[in-house]
C-alpha cells in the first residue's frame, strides 16, 4: 500500500523530517502555550487529512491533559510527590512537539517514498538502506514481540526470575531478527537495490504547494510563539 501516492495532502518525507528536526532545535527556546497548542493542532489537522483521525484526536487530548495537569500543579503547594509528577509532566510537555513530528513522519510515510526522496538529495546508499530498513522492520518487530509474549505465557515464564526472563525474550527476538534480515536482503536484491544504474520509479516525489504550506506554517507559528512569549 502506498500512503504517499494515495493522498494529495501528504508532504514529502523530507519536509516532514525537516519539520521534526526544526521542532527539536526549537525546544531550547521558550514558546508561548497558545502557539505550541496551535502547532499541535496544525500537525493534527495534517494527520486528519491523511486519514489518521485517531492519531489526531489522541495527540490533541494528550496535549490538553498535560497542559491542564502542569497548570494545576504549579498552582498547588509543593509536596515531594506532586513535585515529582510535575517534573514528569513538564518533561513530557517539553519533548512533545518533536515527538509528535516524528510520529507523524512514521505514520504517514512509506518505505518507497522515503527511499526516493532520500535519493533525491544524493545521500549515499550506505545510509539510505539502513534507514529504510528501520521503517520496514518496525511493524514486524511489534508482531514478533506479541507472539513471543504469547509463547512465554503458554510456558509459564514470568518476570519472577528477571535474568531468565530477559534471556528468553532476547534470544528468540534476535534469532527471528536474523531470519528477517535474510528475507529483507533477498527481496531487496531482487528489486535490484544494489545496482548503481538509474532507476525508474512507480511514482515521483515532488515538492508541491502542500509542502510549502506545511513547512512555512510550522516555521511561522514557531517563530511567532517565540517572539510573543
Amino acid at each position: 500500500m502506498n500512503l504517499y501516492a494515495k493522498s494529495k495532502f501528504n508532504p514529502t518525507p523530507l519536509s516532514k523530517l525537516f519539520v521534526t528536526v526544526f521542532l527539536s532545535v526549537c525546544i531550547s527556546f521558550n514558546t508561548s502555550a497558545l502557539f505550541s497548542f496551535a502547532l499541535v493542532a496544525f500537525i493534527s489537522v495534517f494527520c486528519m487529512l491523511n486519514s489518521k483521525s485517531k492519531l489526531a484526536i489522541k495527540s490533541i487530548t494528550i496535549y490538553l491533559l498535560l497542559n491542564i495537569l502542569s497548570f494545576d500543579f504549579i498552582l498547588s503547594s509543593y509536596d515531594f510527590l506532586k513535585n515529582y509528577v510535575l517534573f514528569l509532566v513538564i518533561v513530557a510537555k517539553f519533548f512533545y512537539l518533536p515527538f509528535l513530528g516524528g510520529i507523524f513522519f512514521v505514520a504517514t510515510s512509506d518505505v518507497s517514498s522515503i527511499i526516493v526522496s532520500l535519493e533525491k538529495v544524493k545521500l549515499p546508499k550506505t545510509i539510505i538502506i539502513p534507514l529504510s530498513v528501520i521503517f520496514r522492520y518496525f511493524p514486524t518487530f511489534k508482531e514478533d514481540r506479541k507472539s513471543i509474549k504469547d509463547a512465554m505465557k503458554m510456558r509459564g515464564i514470568t518476570f519472577k526470575n528477571p535474568i531468565r526472563y530477559l534471556e528468553y525474550v532476547s534470544v528468540p527476538t534476535i534469532i527471528s531478527a536474523t531470519n528477517i534480515i535474510d528475507d529483507i536482503s533477498i527481496s531487496a536484491e531482487t528489486k535490484c537495490i544494489s545496482d548503481p544504474c538509474k532507476k525508474e520509479r512507480f511514482f515521483d516525489v515532488k515538492y508541491t504547494l502542500i509542502d510549502f504550506i506545511f513547512i512555512s506554517f510550522v516555521i511561522l507559528i514557531q517563530i511567532f510563539g517565540i517572539l510573543y512569549d
Binding site: 539502513p130 522492520y137 518487530f141 534476535i174 534480515i181 536482503s185
Partner: peptide, 15 residues
C-alpha cells in the same frame, strides 16, 4: 558493505 550488511545494520540498530 553489500546489501545484506546494510540490512543487518538497520535491523540491529532498531533492536
Amino acid at each position: 558493505l553489500n546489501v545484506k550488511d546494510l540490512v543487518t545494520i538497520g535491523v540491529f540498530a532498531i533492536l
